[in-house]
């Protein structure tokens, strides 16, 4: 079992931080093919905010998202998520931590096509050991809440892209995780649907004990972010505290 530490990793603002990353590095490959994806990244995400990570392709934003989510081992540095030092945990404990605290929304939804909506949404609960009837009851309730009532027994392929992403969001939230990780959540959606999804994610981030981190290329979603982190060449270049900056500067 993972025990979340109560130690303060950064005395100045730990109480407000959901994610606290210091000096994290990650390389892929060996020899001449060796690539430094993260070069000593420092990064923070706060509770109750939606933070967007942006940057050009290959800048390391997905790698950063992966190490924060605990899905990728990193070479050096420290990562505290909800005051739990991931860098000190064993892989098995990281998996335990992830299954209880992290919800995922993927670019391609990754809904299992052979399962119906209820079954897809109930997966995180089942992984967490919740019994099937209770898990499916909760999944049905959430689907109803997300406007998919009456379609619980449909397969994902019978839904539009926007509806599939709503199912994916329901799946990400069903076990009430404290952190929601979104990888290009709007890239497979049209403008209108993407806007609705981002509004939904922003509402989710309003929870005072939750944090939503979004990696995206889509500049239409920037306005929904509370803060924005710009990455380039494996490093965090800038952190924008206010959306007004973008409104003034025009499109990023």
């Amino acid at each position: 079992m993972v025990k979340e530490t109560t130690e303060d990793p950064s005395p100045a603002n730990a109480h407000a931080l959901a994610v606290h990353v210091r000096g994290v590095s990650k390389t892929f490959g060996t020899g001449e093919a060796r690539t430094h994806a993260l070069k000593g990244v420092d990064f923070d995400a706060r509770l109750g905010e939606m933070l967007v990570i942006v940057g050009p392709s290959g800048c390391g934003k997905t790698t950063l998202l992966s190490v924060i989510a605990g899905t990728l081992e990193f070479d050096g540095g420290e990562i505290d998520v909800f005051n739990t030092p991931l860098h000190l945990l064993k892989p098995r404990d990281i998996t335990e931590f992830r299954k209880r605290n992290v919800g995922f929304i993927f670019q391609q939804f990754n809904l299992i096509p052979t399962l119906n909506l209820v079954e897809n949404v109930s997966v995180p609960l089942l992984i967490n050991g919740v019994r099937r009837p209770a898990a499916e009851k909760k999944a049905r309730a959430l689907l109803e809440q997300f406007g998919l009532g009456g379609r619980e027994n449909d397969r994902p392929t019978m839904l539009s892209g926007g509806q599939q992403q709503r199912v994916a969001i329901a799946r990400a939230l069903v076990h009430e995780p404290r952190m929601v990780i979104c990888d290009e959540p709007t890239s497979a959606l049209d403008k209108e649907t993407g806007a609705r999804i981002m509004e939904l994610l922003r509402d989710i981030a309003r929870h005072p004990d939750r944090c939503v981190i979004v990696v995206t290329h889509d500049n239409r979603v920037f306005k929904y972010a509370d803060r924005m982190t710009e990455m380039e060449d494996g490093r965090v270049q800038r952190v924008h505290e206010s959306l007004n900056y973008y409104d003034q500067e025009g499109e990023h």
């Binding site: 899905t71 998996t95 335990e96 992830r98 992290v102 995922f104 391609q108 997966v123 995180p124 967490n128």
Partner: peptide, 16 residues
């Protein structure tokens, strides 16, 4: 594999 990867990301252990 991508669905298994998604399950793994969601916390499904190798054993499961």
């Amino acid at each position: 594999l991508r669905y298994l990867g998604a399950l793994k990301a969601m916390g499904a252990s190798n054993g499961l």
